[in-house]
Design a protein around this nucleic acid. Structure first.
Length: 571
RNA sequence: CGGGGUGUGGCGCAGUUGGUUAGCGCGCAGCGUUUGGGACGCUGAAGUCGGAGGUUCGAGUCCUCUCACCCCGACCA
């Protein structure tokens, strides 16, 4: 490809509204342009990289017997009503009517059409297991897109769906997908960590996320240095330690004027925060008030709480709502409450003589004991893991880090097959629901993460495997015919083996060309100039290397090969 | 949805207490000189000042409404 003909221009200045490194570089290098918030046009160089990423993923999916399909972007709402998500998913699902007044949706994911296909095509256990996948556009009307390609509303995803006779077969197959994902990310030049995750709106029994560690990430990971346990903070487990013991004492009301925080309260009464019970309130999708009770030194994990309640929506309650329910904010008590759903964190089981609210402004109870003094609709783990907490696996200390979620794999189970009637006949002639898994990777986000992970102050440093082109030939002094000829023949000969971008622009200075080359960040730069020819050939430089070498033209190919092979990142 | 911010040629920005014909750098076009780290000269094209309404003799500038985008939060496979 000739640089003079390349569609897309490099920007000399940083765009004013790009904060993330990857966003800045994607714009400056002329790779993408925004057309609306979270909606991007992908220019030739970006699309080349995305196709390379897709090809790597395609190979890994095919290697585990995946079959590529293409499912529609517009679905009839009926399918989403059948699965229930028409009702459970919020405004991020774009709904519209076609001209006939029929409800339609823009695909934000493809479980529904896949399950519909499965119920039509699969009738026998003999057809299972199977894996289908696609590269297709999704649209999610996120309330807030940000960070360039890291979080967008419209994006291309590789999504895959497996179908099995039973959970055992899904369990058997799942690790192959995980391995395929690890292979794919590594081949794309990325270091990822695999973490336990929350299945969220997808439902299902287990899921794992593939994360690139980055301060630009929106997810918090919790991981243990000791044993390698790693999880999204939304799902992370930890050891809460033994409860404060002792013989239960009689309940006793004490005046605690002005004590608004747990810390103040604990100091005032001379007890550790872990001997208090903290009350936190939420409102669910039906307007019902949820009363979450947790040990005073811990915080509520809203995701865990929502999952435990099977709530589709959960938000903190307002003071007005609490008042209307007869709850004294700041002094709320699980003791004697009525008409609310009480969820107790398991940290309170066996804890003796806690300080809890008295549901009267300015008063608390001492010596509250569960379940002696208050009931619970649900007792479970609803605690948020934090840096410094104790690993539940090995007892080590947990640390937190930020990450960008590139892939997510789920054991869906029968959520969709059951809801939509996707069944098969087993060898005994029994009708059974298909057991499903689903597996996603964001293509554009992967590309952005690669840039986020591989760059310097001059520009992008593409991992060779996903670079738009591997070689950037820079021609200088091209007004001299013999040099132009040499550069042209280098372009042609290297082009037989690699994708080559040839900077043959005549009106640009050497400085502009070198700076553009660094900005675009193709892995190997080959400079053909009066100086290089005089020195005996062409100058070869890897983008990540400080040094360059002049190589005789007849040995260029092996030099480029060696430079590509010197890539220091994963491959 | 809450908080904050920004909208002026393609990009980055300036524009005073309201006052002629709205500027600067980069980029772009033409001509010439240039080519190893963002060259130089000359000439030139390109702007409904985000939009609507209002105040005023006069609005890029003041007022009202509105739209878009960015950042923080809420939210989120």
């Amino acid at each position: 490809m000739r640089m003079s003909r390349l569609f897309g221009t490099t920007l000399r200045h940083d765009p004013a509204d790009a904060e993330l490194v990857s966003h800045r570089l994607l714009l400056r290098a002329g790779l993408v342009r925004a057309i609306a918030a979270g909606i991007y046009c992908y220019l030739p160089l970006a699309y080349r990289s995305m196709r390379r990423i897709e090809e790597i993923i395609r190979q890994e999916m095919n290697a585990i017997d995946g079959q590529e399909v293409l499912l529609p972007v517009v679905h009839p709402a009926e399918l989403w009503k059948e699965s229930g998500r028409w009702f459970s998913v919020g405004p991020e699902l774009v709904r519209f009517e076609d001209r006939g007044g029929r409800d339609m949706v823009l695909a934000m994911t493809h479980e529904e059409p896949v399950t519909d296909l499965l119920r039509r095509e699969v009738s026998s256990y003999r057809q299972l297991p199977l894996l289908v996948y696609q590269f297709q556009v999704k649209f999610r009307d996120e309330p807030r897109s940000r960070g360039g390609l890291v979080r967008v509303r419209e994006f291309t995803m590789k999504d895959g769906y497996s179908a099995h006779t039973d959970f055992e077969d899904l369990d058997r197959f799942y690790p192959y997908v995980r391995q395929a994902y690890e292979n794919a990310f590594r081949r794309c030049g990325l270091d990822v960590v695999v973490v336990d995750a929350d299945p969220g709106m997808m439902g299902g029994t287990a899921s794992h996320e593939f994360m690139v560690l980055s301060e630009a990430g929106e997810d918090t990971l919790i991981h243990c240095q000791g044993c390698g346990y790693a999880a999204n903070a939304e799902a992370a487990r930890f050891a809460k330690g033994d409860p404060v013991g002792g013989d239960p004492l009689p309940l006793e009301e004490v005046a605690t004027p002005g004590m608004k925080t747990i810390q103040q309260l604990a100091d005032f009464l001379g007890v550790p925060t872990r001997q208090t019970a903290k009350a936190v309130f939420y409102v669910d999708q039906d307007g019902g008030i949820i009363f979450a009770v947790i040990r005073g030194d811990l915080d509520v994990n809203e995701v865990k709480l929502g999952n435990a309640l099977r709530a589709t929506e959960l938000r903190p309650a307002t003071d007005a709502e609490l008042e209307a329910a007869g709850i004294a904010a700041g002094y709320a008590s699980p003791i004697g409450v009525k008409g609310v759903k009480v969820v107790v964190d398991d940290s309170l089981v066996g804890a003796a003589n806690l300080v809890a609210g008295a549901n009267r402004a300015g008063f608390h109870y001492r010596n509250a004991n569960f379940p002696r003094d208050f009931r619970a609709d649900l007792v479970t783990d609803i605690a948020l893991a934090r840096q410094g907490d104790t690993c539940s696996v090995c007892g080590g200390e947990l640390a937190d880090q930020r990450g960008i979620e590139l892939g997510h794999i789920f054991k869906l189970g029968t959520k969709y097959s059951q809801a939509m009637g996707a069944t098969y006949l087993d060898p005994d002639g029994q009708e059974k629901p298909i057991v499903m898994g689903c597996y996603g990777i964001g293509i554009g986000r992967l590309m952005a993460a690669a840039i986020e992970q591989h760059n310097d102050d001059k520009g992008i440093i593409w991992p060779p495997a996903i670079a738009p082109c591997q070689v950037h030939v820079v021609g200088l002094n091209l007004d001299r015919a013999e040099i132009a000829e040499a550069a042209e023949s280098v372009y042609e000969s290297l082009g037989k083996r690699w994708e080559v971008l040839y900077d043959e622009r005549s009106e640009q200075s050497a400085g502009v060309k070198f700076n553009d080359a660094d900005l675009l960040g193709l892995p190997v730069r080959v400079t053909v100039s009066a100086r290089s020819l005089k020195a005996g050939g062409a100058e070869v430089k890897a983008r990540w290397a400080a040094a360059s070498e002049v190589v005789p033209l007849e040995r260029l190919e092996e030099a480029v090969e060696a430079a590509l092979a010197s890539w220091p990142g994963p491959q």
